[in-house]
Amino acid sequence: MNMTPFRRHRGIAAPLVRINIDTDAIIPSREMKRVSKEGLGEGLFANWRYSDVATREENPDFVLNRGPFREASILLGGVNFGCGSSREHAVWALAVLGIRAVVAPSFGSIFYGNCVRNGILPVRLDEGAIAAMASRLEATPGGELTIDLPGQVLIADDGSEYAFDIDATDKEMLLEGLDQIALTLRHDDAIHAFMARDREARPWIYSLPSPRTPGS
């Protein structure tokens, strides 16, 4: 898997500060048309972005359809951003539209993991700080934020700085753009050793009827 590493990013931020934005809203099921990661950009926030989903007529009130916010690469969200369905398509669709980071007070946990695995930085920040940035950005659209991952700091449009936390494993993956399978296979000896021990300790886990596969 190729993932764009994330180190430092400066870009326009769009405020979409609603609580419990779920992955059905980020990419409706109906927009996941193929067994593929391609072609998902159009479906991003489809029910909000279009006033008529069928004709793709834009809803002029939706933030990503307004002036400079069209070029946004950072989203400001509300509590529990990305809750709901596990669909990784939500993250793929954000990535296609050029979103590099999502800033919210908290995230749905599967969504958070999916972001990290696809080069999108999820930043957990205090609700008050987000509200302050959001109201400034609403007042003067086009404001830019800078996010520095090595330093774990977000620099707001008015220059204020906010430190944020991120787990070291997630940070490394984002910084290096690493393929996690390859990373894990560095521990292959440990995995094999575990399995050998485990077969002794829990033999029932390994004793299964043979699979019934199509055509077999």
């Binding site: 898997m1 990784e88 599967i110 993991g113 399995m195």
Partner: peptide, 21 residues
């Protein structure tokens, strides 16, 4: 038991493991 993304599902199938916080 927990829900994961598709990339993690690939990881679980290829390595029999997942890195979990």
């Amino acid at each position: 038991a927990w829900g994961i993304g598709s990339t993690e599902a690939e990881h679980a199938m290829a390595t029999k493991t997942l890195a979990v916080n």
